[in-house]
Design a protein around this nucleic acid. Structure first.
Lengths: 200, 200
DNA sequence: ATTATCTATAGATCTATAGATAATGC
DNA sequence: ATTATCTATAGATCTATAGATAATGC
C-alpha cells in the first residue's frame, strides 16, 4: 500500500490541521486553498498535489476529525443507561474547552444542509451513526432495568443530539450568555428523572 | 421620509425574495449578486443601486424575515404556560411546511458563528430576544399556577430553542429520517409532565 | 430633481492543470 | 521510478464603482 515518503506524510498532517482552522473560520465556501497553503509554507499547487481538490480536502478533514472523536464519543459496548447519559455531559464539558473544533462542526453542518454540498453525505452518515450509538446505549439501560422499559430510544437519541448541536450554536454566537454544559446537564438530569423505572 | 418611486419599491421586494432563495441555497459567502440580479431580471449594478452592498442585502433579508416571523412567533402578552409550549409545537409544525425558510435560518446561523460574519450580530440579538420571549411565557405560566413555581425559565427557554434548531438541522440533512414535529412534540409533552405543579 | 437603470471596467480573488525541477528511497 | 515541489497560467468568478441615459413624479 503506497503511502508516499515520510516527508509527505508529515506535510499532509500539517495540511489537515491548517485546513481545519480555515474551514472552521470560513466554512467550505469561504475557505481559500491559497491561505491554507500559506499556513503550511507550501505553494497552492503543492497543496493540491497532496489532496487533488478542495472537496477532497474537506472530506479528508472531516474524516480525520471523526476518527479522533469516535474514541471519545464511543459509548462502548458496556456503557449504557444513566452512565451513557453522564458520558454525554462529559462530551459537552469537553467541547466547551475546544471552541475551534465545535465551530468546525457547526459551520460545516450548517452549510451541509444544502444538497450538493460536499459535506452533505458526511453529515447524513454522522447523524445516523450518532443516533444509532446513543439509542443502543439507552436500550441497554432499559434492558438492565436502569431505565424505564417502554422508552422511545430513537426519539430520545435524536433529542439529545439536537440539544447538543443547538446549544453549541447558541454558545458559539454568544459565549458569555450561555453556559452550554450547565444547561445540557439540566436536560440530562430531567431526563434521568423522567426515565427512571416506576417504583416496584 | 424618502422611499423612492413605486416601481422601485416593488423591485426591492422582488430582490428580497430572490436574495432569500439564493442565501438559503448557498449561504452568505456562496451567494452571488449576479445570480440574484438575474432572477429579478436586473443587471448586477442595478441591484446594487437598491442595496449598496452584499452585506446590507443580507441584513435586509434577515430583518425582513424576522418581521414576518415575529407575528407568528409572538407569544403575546396573554399566552403563557402550557398554551405557550403548544404554540411552539405549532411553529415547528408550520416550519415543516416551509423548508426554504428553515434552510435560510439554519445556513445563516451556522455561518454566523464566525465573528465578523455580517449575520453575527443579528443572530446574537435574535437568540436573546427569543429566549426572553419564551422565558417570559413560562414565567407567566408559573405565576398562574399552571406550571411548577421554582422552574428555571431561562434554562428551559434555551433548551426549547436549541431543540428546535437542532432538529431542524437533522431534518434538513435527512428529511425522511426525522419527523421533526413529532420528535419536538414528544419533548414538549415530557416537559409539561415534568413542570406540572406538585399535586396540592 | 430624483430615482432607476444600463454598460464597462477595475481589481481581487479563486480552483485546477501543465510542465519543469529537485529530492527520496527501493 | 516515484514523490514532492515550484512557477506560470487558463478561465471563471466576484463585488463595487464610474459615468451615461431614461423614466418618474413633485
Amino acid at each position: 500500500m503506497r503511502r508516499g515518503y515520510a516527508t509527505g506524510q508529515a506535510r499532509r498532517e500539517r495540511i489537515l490541521a491548517a485546513a481545519l482552522l480555515e474551514f472552521a473560520e470560513n466554512g467550505y465556501r469561504g475557505a481559500s486553498l491559497a491561505r491554507i497553503a500559506e499556513r503550511v509554507e507550501l505553494s497552492q499547487a503543492g497543496l493540491l498535489h497532496h489532496f487533488t481538490s478542495k472537496e477532497r480536502l474537506l472530506v479528508a478533514v472531516l474524516d480525520y476529525r471523526d476518527e479522533q472523536d469516535m474514541r471519545r464519543f464511543d459509548l462502548g459496548e458496556t456503557t449504557g443507561g444513566v452512565a451513557a447519559l453522564r458520558a454525554l455531559v462529559d462530551v459537552v464539558e469537553h467541547n466547551a474547552r475546544v471552541p475551534g473544533l465545535v465551530q468546525l462542526f457547526s459551520v460545516i453542518s450548517g452549510e451541509a444542509v444544502t444538497p450538493g454540498h460536499p459535506g452533505h453525505e458526511w453529515a447524513r452518515r454522522r447523524y445516523r451513526r450518532l443516533r444509532a450509538q446513543v439509542a443502543a446505549a439507552l436500550r441497554r439501560g432499559a434492558e438492565r432495568g436502569e431505565l424505564r422499559a417502554g422508552l422511545d430510544a430513537e426519539a430520545h437519541a435524536d433529542r439529545l443530539i439536537a440539544m447538543m448541536d443547538g446549544l453549541q450554536t447558541q454558545w458559539l454566537i454568544d459565549p458569555e450568555r450561555v453556559d452550554m454544559a450547565a444547561v445540557f446537564r439540566g436536560y440530562v438530569d430531567d431526563l434521568v428523572a423522567l426515565l427512571r423505572p416506576p417504583a416496584s
